[in-house]
Computed example of a mutant assay.
Amino acid sequence: MAGPLDINDDMQRMVLRKGEATAKGGHAFQRLLQLAETRDSGQVRRVALFIAATYNGEAFPFDLFELRAVDEAISDDMLLCIDALRRGQSDLHSLVPDGDRRVRAVIEQWGLKWPEAQ
């Protein structure tokens, strides 16, 4: 049976893991965002779709099989972002400078369409 000290240790480890995942996810998101802002290829279109999905998953669904269609470094960054989202401390776009505006610009730049209002 776990005692109070065990529970506190578990909570501290969880907080540390959340912070680490958030930091790694923020750095990965910055790299992906920079790719989508500056490059033009099929892989980078998938990056733009991924970025849009992290911003608004209902409006921009992302097929996880797309992870197979990008370079390993890109998919590794996507997985770091997913882990940060899973830990739920921050929205990814809030972890990078001017993230909200930049993500909206990527959505527009890549011609991704917001769903029509019902």
Rank of each mutant, 00 (worst) to 15 (best):
M1Q: 07
M1S: 15
A2F: 10
G3N: 11
G3M: 08
L5R: 03
L5G: 03
L5H: 05
L5Y: 06
D6M: 11
D6T: 01
I7A: 08
I7V: 15
I7S: 02
N8A: 07
D10M: 08
M11I: 09
M11K: 09
M11C: 04
Q12C: 03
R13A: 11
M14A: 09
V15Y: 12
L16A: 10
L16G: 00
R17K: 09
G19A: 06
T22R: 08
T22G: 01
A23D: 10
G25H: 01
G26Q: 10
G26N: 09
H27A: 13
F29V: 07
F29E: 02
Q30D: 07
R31A: 07
R31W: 01
R31F: 01
L33W: 00
L33D: 04
Q34E: 13
A36Q: 07
E37N: 05
E37C: 06
T38H: 06
R39Y: 00
G42A: 06
Q43C: 09
Q43M: 13
V44F: 11
R46M: 06
L49V: 01
F50M: 04
F50A: 03
F50L: 01
I51L: 14
A52N: 06
A52R: 13
A53Q: 09
A53W: 15
A53F: 14
T54I: 00
T54G: 15
T54H: 05
N56S: 13
G57W: 15
G57A: 05
G57P: 07
E58T: 11
A59M: 13
F60N: 11
F60M: 12
F62R: 05
F62N: 02
E66R: 03
E66G: 00
L67Q: 06
R68K: 12
R68E: 15
V70Q: 01
D71A: 02
A73V: 08
A73D: 12
M78R: 08
L80S: 06
I82E: 05
D83L: 03
L85R: 12
L85Q: 11
R86L: 03
R86E: 10
G88A: 13
D91V: 03
H93V: 04
S94M: 14
S94E: 12
V96W: 10
P97M: 13
D98T: 02
D100G: 06
D100Q: 13
V103I: 11
V103F: 15
A105H: 07
V106D: 06
V106A: 09
I107K: 03
Q109I: 02
Q109H: 11
Q109G: 02
W110N: 07
